[in-house]
Computed example of a mutant assay.
Amino acid sequence: MERIEHTEITAGLWHLRPPRETEAADLLELAADPGVRLYTPKLNGVATEEQAREELRRWAAWEDRITFSILDSTTERYVGHVMVFGLDEVNAAAEIGYRVAPWARGRGAAGTAVRCVTGWAFSVLGLARLTLLHSVGNDASCRVAEKNGYLLEGVQRSQFRGGDGLLHDTHLHARLATD
Results as ranks from 00 to 15, higher is better:
34 P>E: 14
171 H>G: 02
104 A>W: 00
13 L>I: 00
158 S>R: 14
160 F>S: 10
105 R>D: 02
174 A>I: 01
160 F>H: 06
136 V>I: 10
138 N>C: 06
63 E>C: 03
44 N>A: 14
130 L>R: 06
131 T>H: 11
69 S>V: 04
89 E>P: 00
29 E>I: 02
55 E>M: 13
118 T>M: 06
84 V>H: 06
165 G>F: 03
97 G>S: 14
139 D>I: 07
90 V>F: 06
2 E>Q: 12
105 R>Q: 12
79 V>I: 14
48 T>W: 07
119 G>V: 00
175 R>S: 02
36 V>T: 14
82 V>F: 10
35 G>E: 15
136 V>E: 12
68 F>T: 01
37 R>C: 06
86 G>Y: 09
110 A>M: 04
81 H>D: 14
52 A>H: 08
115 R>M: 04
100 V>H: 09
37 R>E: 07
30 L>R: 03
66 I>N: 03
146 E>I: 05
103 W>H: 13
86 G>L: 07
153 E>T: 02
65 R>S: 15
157 R>Q: 07
19 P>Y: 01
116 C>Q: 15
142 C>S: 15
86 G>R: 08
100 V>G: 01
35 G>K: 12
90 V>H: 09
16 L>P: 02
12 G>E: 09
66 I>E: 02
64 D>R: 13
118 T>S: 15
156 Q>S: 12
106 G>T: 04
33 D>T: 06
58 R>C: 00
66 I>R: 04
141 S>G: 15
158 S>F: 08
74 T>E: 14
122 F>Q: 12
55 E>G: 00
119 G>A: 10
155 V>G: 05
173 H>N: 11
20 R>P: 00
67 T>M: 03
125 L>N: 05
30 L>V: 12
57 R>K: 15
15 H>V: 04
122 F>P: 01
178 T>M: 06
69 S>C: 03
18 P>I: 10
47 A>S: 12
30 L>T: 05
81 H>Y: 13
166 L>R: 15
73 S>K: 03
46 V>G: 00
133 L>Y: 13
60 A>W: 03
106 G>M: 08
91 N>F: 13
11 A>E: 13
127 L>H: 02
179 D>G: 14
77 R>T: 13
129 R>M: 09
35 G>C: 01
8 E>M: 09
107 R>L: 11
31 A>S: 10
88 D>K: 13
163 G>Y: 07
21 E>N: 04
174 A>Q: 02
27 L>A: 04
154 G>L: 05
176 L>N: 00
173 H>R: 05
132 L>G: 05
52 A>S: 10
75 T>M: 08
29 E>L: 09
105 R>I: 02
18 P>M: 11
93 A>P: 01
19 P>A: 07
22 T>M: 06
154 G>F: 08
29 E>D: 15
88 D>E: 14
29 E>Y: 01
158 S>V: 01
102 P>T: 14
24 A>G: 07
111 G>F: 13
42 K>N: 09
108 G>C: 11
94 A>K: 11
170 T>W: 00
96 I>Y: 04
112 T>R: 12
148 N>V: 07
4 I>C: 06
116 C>W: 00
9 I>F: 09
129 R>E: 10
146 E>M: 08
79 V>S: 04
177 A>H: 13
121 A>W: 03
65 R>C: 05
133 L>F: 13
148 N>T: 08
5 E>G: 07
169 D>R: 05
13 L>E: 11
100 V>A: 03
94 A>H: 11
38 L>V: 01
